[in-house]
């Protein structure tokens, strides 16, 4: 037990928690903005996976990390737009559309990977690039704090800025007001001439952009290659984080951090003498516990209401 605390109460652990929170936060922001517009995007998992592959492929062929990132974002945007087109224009059920997208991503990424490299597992043979880490001047030299907040991947900082940006858009701008109105009372929005479909389109496209950045982080920051199924349920965990955060930016961010900590813990505990399989389920146990706590509270609220 002693050694466990020793591991957790270190700057290294906090640093690693922030690192693993990054993709969760991106995906959770994607879940948040689409959910607030009333068109929950459950295809985040698949979008992240495709974007992760796109980042590797684009950067490998152009030898530019930036183009890799843009490629990942573009693929995220396109797949989310495709989902939007199917569900908004062609009226497919949004849940079915999302599930289809996830399956498509699962098989499609392996197919593309095999086609390009002859390997069905990882992109190790592609010389892909990674996105740089940023060392923040002044702060990097502060003991402990510097060790925790400085030196992260550029996308980690973008994720934090994105969270602030999403909050700002939702709370302060006309677009945000419209997104929220469409999500809460579609008819009210329609009655004053708000184009409901357009707003949902924008929200889904934005969720694709965020998931795209989350995917890029996985293959161009967290590790430097693509491997099959590497989104590993993060798209689903993000949906849980958004639900637990009750659709608020702050709540969603905090829930993402909670899941990130659980994830980091599972990484760290592997150093101890605990079976790896047991440890790997930690983030998922945290998800279930989180959702359970949320459900119990909601049920109690409903009960009190009668």
């Amino acid at each position: 037990m002693r050694s466990l605390l020793d591991i957790i109460l270190t700057p290294d652990f906090a640093f690693s928690a922030i690192r693993v929170t990054t993709p969760l936060l991106f995906a959770a922001l994607g879940a948040l903005i689409s959910d607030r517009a009333g068109a929950a995007n459950i295809g985040l998992e698949g979008i992240m996976l495709m974007a992760a592959l796109a980042g590797v492929v684009f950067s490998a062929y152009t030898q530019s990390a930036l183009i890799g990132l843009l490629g990942a974002i573009l693929i995220g945007l396109l797949t989310a737009s495709m989902l939007a087109y199917f569900t908004l224009k062609l009226k497919t059920d949004v849940i079915l559309g999302g599930i289809a997208l996830n399956f498509f991503a699962n098989g499609g990424t392996i197919f593309v990977l095999y086609y390009l490299t002859g390997d069905k597992g990882t992109s190790a043979s592609l010389a892909s690039m990674v996105l740089p880490n940023i060392h923040i001047p002044v702060i990097r030299n502060i003991p402990i704090l510097g060790e925790i907040v400085s030196g992260h991947n550029v996308l980690t900082y973008i994720a934090i800025l994105s969270a602030i940006g999403v909050w700002y858009v939702l709370e302060k701008t006309a677009l945000g007001l419209r997104i929220r109105s469409v999500g809460e009372n579609e008819n009210a929005a329609k009655s004053v001439g708000v184009n409901v479909m357009k707003i949902r389109y924008i929200a889904l496209a934005l969720s694709g952009v965020f998931a795209g950045m989350g995917g890029a982080f996985l293959s161009m920051g967290y590790v430097s290659w693509f491997s099959r199924g590497m989104s590993a349920g993060r798209g689903w965990i993000a949906l849980a984080a958004e639900a637990m955060g009750r659709g608020t930016v702050l709540g969603t961010t905090l829930s993402s951090v909670l899941f990130g900590v659980a994830d980091a813990l599972s990484n760290t505990l592997q150093l101890l003498n605990i079976p790896a399989e047991l440890i790997r389920i930690l983030p998922y146990v945290a998800t279930v516990v989180g959702l359970l706590a949320y459900a119990i509270r909601e049920t109690n609220k409903r009960k009190a209401k009668g």
Binding site: R180, S181, E184, N185, A188, K190, V192
Partner: peptide, 10 residues
């Protein structure tokens, strides 16, 4: 409208 077209949380 008979059923108000308002967003409750706004």
């Amino acid at each position: 409208h008979q059923h108000f077209m308002l967003v409750p949380s706004f």
